[in-house]
Design a binder for these strands. Structure first.
Lengths: 252, 252
DNA sequence: CGCGGTTTTGACCGGCTTCAAAGGGAGTGG
DNA sequence: CCACTCCCTTTGAAGCCGGTCAAAACCGCG
């Protein structure tokens, strides 16, 4: 069912662009996604506690929905998707996380969704007890959780109110750093093209966007026909104009 | 546009059922929603810090998307919906929260969505600084955030993969305590009927479920025609059999 | 009773899904 | 080197679910 994406963890790390705060713009101009300033207590914890970093292949399951939530994972590199299944097999990818994000936190003691790597990934495995007991670490955990919530809010809008084309355009914009979010830097002078690499199969994209693979494929073909994007090797998508794609997201 | 729901804060409080842990079942059988054990640090904070409880009418805006996130609100009673708007006016209600939940937390310094009361509500207003600075309070905050995340995951599945009927059935089940969630107690002996009071207009329900008012209305009418529910006074819905409604949610 | 609002119902339409088949790319083996 | 296979992806045709537009019904209220 899933394409075996050939990629190692190092390549994945290079792909995930750093999104630092934008200084000196007066109004806060950081992106909504992933703005985690260095947290000393967290850094100290990682240096001292018994944690291990595991390297996982693409399409490796980190944990299953409803299993006891023994571990918390910090994504060090790569991308991980979180999904839930309905009884009849329908799948919804509820979130996609990358470096710096924490997953596996749970209120109930059971994982509320499954986690599967999209790319080769390095994940740090933490003991649930260690993280939950320490007051000092909660501030860092707190930031991670708030980031996830804002991401989930955006996703709810996408799933509930956007057309197929708007969903696909929004999806593509996810992979363009510093664009289409709060603090968008606008098109660079003398060109606004960008190539993004989709490390997901059409099935995974469809399950993330709440569509079918056929619809995802059709929308991409249509965008290609209209000259908005060009597709190289199925997983490399070149946008002639990022702004033009952004205008299709339904946000503006 | 919105029906002025006649309800005071006290009635709202009575409506929100407590969902305690289920002891003695071996496997943890608590619900996924709202399982916040008493947090002494939090309780002490509320007793000491300069916080105030405000009583708000139904359909009162607590804060707007993109406004500076100065305050954090704890819902003391009533229900509050969080929503986002697209530029052309499409609205998606991303979450509905009730007593014990915290809203208004933000990574970016700006609220990422708007908050509006659905019912008359009591809300405790907290200073962002006070909450964020204290390490001790973060444990409580984190529990609230994790609960929200699990709720948002469920909502993503609903919006992305469920049919109109499954969405409406899932929505109705939200208001039946201890049923349709982990730890469902099953039908009571000698009858499984339940009346729920919807304190939302059709428009609000539709915006929550990612549908139109017409579709919500049609689905409810259809359920009524088939004898699954009966509707009294537009906002009171009686389910002849909770189990039967639950089977329409798509979860089983 | 009439008025303004929401909700329901009807008719029609269109976007997305479904089902089916063809196309394409990577790996394998003769 | 090329044929073959296995997936995944793309494309086509048809159907349906939910959206859109419009009108009627309902409801509380002055």
């Amino acid at each position: 069912m899933f394409l075996d994406v050939k990629m190692n963890a190092e390549a994945a790390r290079a792909e995930v662009a750093d999104v630092p705060r934008q200084p000196g713009t007066g109004r806060y101009a950081g992106t909504r996604r992933r703005t985690l300033p260095a947290d000393t207590a967290w850094a100290e914890f990682l240096a001292s506690a018994r944690t291990r970093v595991e390297t996982r292949d693409a399409h490796d399951i980190l944990f299953h929905e409803d299993d006891p939530a023994e571990h918390i994972y910090e994504v060090v590199s790569g991308q991980v998707m979180l999904y839930r299944l309905l009884a009849d097999g329908r799948r919804q990818v509820v979130d996609i996380v990358s470096a710096g994000d924490l997953i596996g936190l749970s209120m109930t003691g059971l994982y509320d969704c499954s986690a599967e790597t999209l790319t080769g990934s390095d994940v740090r495995v933490l003991e649930r007890r260690d993280v939950e007991r320490s007051r000092d670490l909660q501030t860092h955990v707190n930031r991670c959780l708030m980031t996830r919530i804002e991401s989930l809010h955006s996703h709810a809008v996408l799933l509930g109110r956007k057309s197929a084309q708007e969903r696909v355009a929004s999806f593509l914009m996810r992979f363009v750093p510093k664009r289409g979010v709060v603090g968008c830097v606008g098109p660079a002078v003398g060109g606004d093209e960008q190539t993004v690499v989709l490390r997901m199969t059409r099935q995974e994209i469809a399950d993330y966007l709440g569509l079918t693979i056929e619809t995802v494929s059709r929308v991409l073909s249509d965008m290609k026909r209209r000259g908005v994007i060009s597709i190289e090797k199925n997983d490399r998508i070149r946008m002639a104009s990022v702004c033009r794609v952004c205008k299709l997201t339904g946000i503006h």
